[in-house]
Design a protein around this nucleic acid. Structure first.
Length: 725
DNA sequence: CAAGCGACAACC
DNA sequence: GTTGTCGCTTGA
């Protein structure tokens, strides 16, 4: 390659005046990088447009998030090409990305990676500039005198040619499918033939080609062509499917509330319908399943979520507007709706499991604030975080609840009374759901007297009880031991398996009932079609059932070990349990199946809340408790996580962080370090620290730390280590 | 003395 | 995130 240096000089040298600079955010965990505009495009507005840029020898796509003029200190490279004619994002979206990065303590590029829709494939062609002397090139490159697909060449080689300033490049998105769609309604005074074309297109919705449309309308292609020129029809990306079903009857409210809670599902949907009558809204959902359920009854809504083909998502970004039902990615859609609605703001599915690990509702609030539009939360049970908002409380149908005390009732894992109820379901040919907190067969061994549970000596995780032969097994590291006959802590002989898993319950029920027994969990879902037809049966499953289909004959919901759902080790466990139980009351909308809980704590405040038909009183108690403890939402809390193969090293790293924090932070601002609840993950020991404070204060504290030494969770939910990215 | 792995900095 | 470099440990 030695000869290349003598070629045309590239890359930003030799200009006299200041140059236009592009701040480009790549979808990587980095801050924006500076590039020069593509050659010959220095005068164009670039903000918000996607650009192809050379990056570490490859070509990557980024978004221009800033423009400037100046004399750069370092050797800058030229962007290769603009990929959008018009900006994809407006200043509003860029401002949102920056504010979100600040809120999440994350680099801008990482936020972009979380929220930008997938990009169309690139078409990248290269050739040598005609003025470059191919005689100086290494052999084998003479083909580059003509345009070639870049794919066939070593990217490193291309980058050398690029650096040497001899490579001419064309980069664009692979053209997306376009269809013909109606842009203007047919007017009076139009000729017969054009009118027929427009009517035909209106009926079809969209047409593949001019010829196809002409055929459908029974006219010549010329007519279609002229309508295209006159702007009656246009060549546009195909429109993703809209909502379906008969429109709901809207429920109008005198005043716009900041949260809507209680009621029945259908009622809340009608309130939403009423809000939408005020104008176009962005409606956010925690998961696709719920979004699709809402879509029934909202034929006007345009869906936007990760389950759609990428052309559909791209199309919505190109032509945003209207009412959009979206998952989190919809927050970046470049338009200003009349308002934002966040559905089920307390759902854990709003927590992104990787990348920035953002929790979405606060970002929705940020987006609404920056756009100057109202935001409304809509859920059966409000999140503790939003209690102070101006409420609309819809009356809640009182749940039919039965708590069975495991201290008094006989029988395990099903008490006699629970079995009798299941038998009733059997006799009447109805349906029942049995909910377990764990998949598989395993359970915990628990001392009912002192609450002791055997834990793994290596992982500090509770050991899982396996039935035959009786064994205690660590699901993390495989450690095995025999179950102790007496409680090692208090000597009680009552040490018993608790927290039966799905498979155990399935086996148990198959022995005791003649009803067909189905299994439904993330790791395996039986076909429930017979149940959907109304045939009798029992489904045993995990909370995946909440996302499953509605069972038309559901009469009983049974939690054989309700306390199993309360055992998570974080301060939101009780709130989560409360929300779960209320969600179960809506498992069959419009009906009230009997909810039966087998529990050691029949007097738990959550159970009382259900008995009283009260969706928010318990949450106010929780809020007061958290305020006393200085927990969110009173302060923000972020988790710093360090990982290392060697446990001592992991702990040492955590202590180093603590040491660095001590200089700046007060005693009460730092918690830990402690081993994470799953202390060892994928061969790494995990320790975490928690920091408390306002966003600004946390930024101050984090400024004292080396960000490469730990991972940060800006809104930790369960304090479980996450190392998946 | 070379391969091998971990820590760390840079990426424009 | 990914890649490249440095310095140290391990093995023939």
């Amino acid at each position: 390659m030695a000869g290349l240096g003598g070629f045309v000089k590239g890359g930003g040298f030799g200009y006299l005046g200041p140059m236009r600079l592009l701040e480009v955010a790549l979808p990587l965990p980095l801050e924006a990088l500076t590039y020069l505009p593509p050659l010959g495009r220095e005068e164009e507005e670039a903000l918000g447009r996607r650009v192809a840029v050379p990056w570490r020898g490859e070509v990557r796509v980024g978004v221009v998030v800033g423009e400037g003029e100046g004399r750069p200190a370092l050797h800058l490279r030229h962007a290769l090409a603009y990929l959008d004619e018009r900006p994809l994002l407006r200043e509003e979206e860029i401002a949102f990305l920056k504010a979100a990065a600040h809120h999440l303590f994350a680099p801008l590029g990482q936020v972009l990676a979380d929220f930008l829709p997938p990009m169309p494939e690139l078409v990248h062609r290269v050739r040598l500039f005609p003025r470059a002397d191919p005689g100086l090139l290494p052999p084998g490159l003479s083909a580059l005198r003509d345009w070639q697909e870049a794919k066939g060449f070593d990217p490193k080689l291309l980058d050398l040619l690029r650096e040497a300033g001899v490579l001419e490049e064309e980069v664009s998105f692979r053209p997306q499918k376009r269809v013909l769609r109606l842009l203007k309604e047919p007017e009076e005074g139009l000729e017969e033939a054009p009118r027929r074309v427009l009517e035909a297109l209106k009926a079809l919705g969209e047409a593949e080609s001019q010829a196809a449309l002409a055929r459908a309308a029974g006219v010549g292609v010329g007519v279609v062509k002229r309508l295209l020129e006159k702007g009656y029809i246009g060549l546009l990306p195909p429109e993703p499917p809209r909502g379906r079903g008969p429109a709901l009857e809207p429920l109008f409210l005198p005043e716009r509330p900041e949260r809507v809670n209680g009621g029945r599902l259908r009622e809340r949907m009608r309130v939403l319908k009423g809000l939408l009558e005020e104008g176009d809204h962005l409606v956010l959902f925690p998961e696709v399943g719920l979004l699709e359920r809402f879509l029934e009854g909202f034929p006007e809504a345009r869906p936007y979520h990760g389950g759609l083909p990428s052309w559909a998502r791209e199309a919505l970004f190109q032509r945003p507007g209207g009412t959009v039902f979206a998952t989190y990615g919809g927050l970046l859609l470049p338009y200003t709706p009349q308002g934002i609605v966040v559905v089920e703001e307390g759902s854990e599915s709003y927590k992104l499991p990787s990348g920035t690990r953002a929790f979405i509702p606060p970002l929705a609030e940020l987006r609404a604030r920056l756009l100057g539009i109202p935001l409304t939360y809509l859920s059966l049970v409000p999140a503790v975080e939003v209690l102070e908002r101006k409420p609309l409380r819809l009356p809640v149908p009182k749940p039919r609840l039965l708590t069975l005390s495991l201290k008094e009732e006989r029988g395990w894992p099903f008490t006699g009374r629970a079995l009798a109820l299941l038998k009733q379901v059997e006799e009447r040919g109805r349906q029942a759901v049995v909910l377990a907190s764990r998949r598989g067969f395993s359970a915990l061994l628990l001392c009912p007297d002192c609450g002791y549970k055997p834990t793994c000596p290596d992982c500090a995780l509770p050991l899982r009880f396996h039935q035959s032969p009786p064994t205690l097994l660590c699901h993390q590291c495989g450690h095995k031991e025999a179950p102790p006959p007496l409680c090692p802590r208090c000597g009680s002989p009552l040490l018993e398996p608790r927290g039966p898993g799905v498979d155990w319950l399935v086996r148990e029920l198959k022995e005791r009932l003649t009803l067909p027994v189905y299994r439904f969990a993330k790791d395996g879902k039986d076909d429930l079609t017979p149940l959907l037809r109304g045939e009798p049966g029992v489904v045993v499953g995990t909370t995946a059932l909440l996302r499953g289909p509605v069972l038309p004959g559901l009469a009983l919901v049974l939690l054989p070990y309700a306390d199993g759902f309360l055992m998570d080790s974080d301060f939101r466990a009780a709130e989560r349990y409360h929300r779960l139980l209320w969600a179960l009351t809506e498992l069959r909308p419009g009906h009230r199946p009997l909810l039966v809980l087998q529990t050691f704590h029949p007097d738990h405040p959550v159970h009382r809340a259900l008995e009283e038909g009260e969706v928010e009183a318990f949450l106010w108690e929780e809020k007061a408790l958290r305020e006393a403890l200085d927990y969110p939402p009173k302060v923000r809390m972020v988790k710093l996580e360090v990982a290392h193969r060697k446990e001592e090293r992991a702990l040492a790293l955590a202590l180093e962080l603590l040491e660095a924090l001590r200089k700046a932070a007060g005693e009460e601002e730092v918690l830990g370090p402690a081993p994470a609840p799953v202390p060892k993950l994928k061969g790494h020991y995990l320790y975490h620290l928690l920091l408390k404070g306002s966003t600004e204060r946390l930024h101050e504290l984090l400024a004292h730390l080396d960000r490469r030494k730990f991972k940060l969770d800006p809104d930790p939910f369960r304090f479980v280590g996450l190392l998946e990215d």
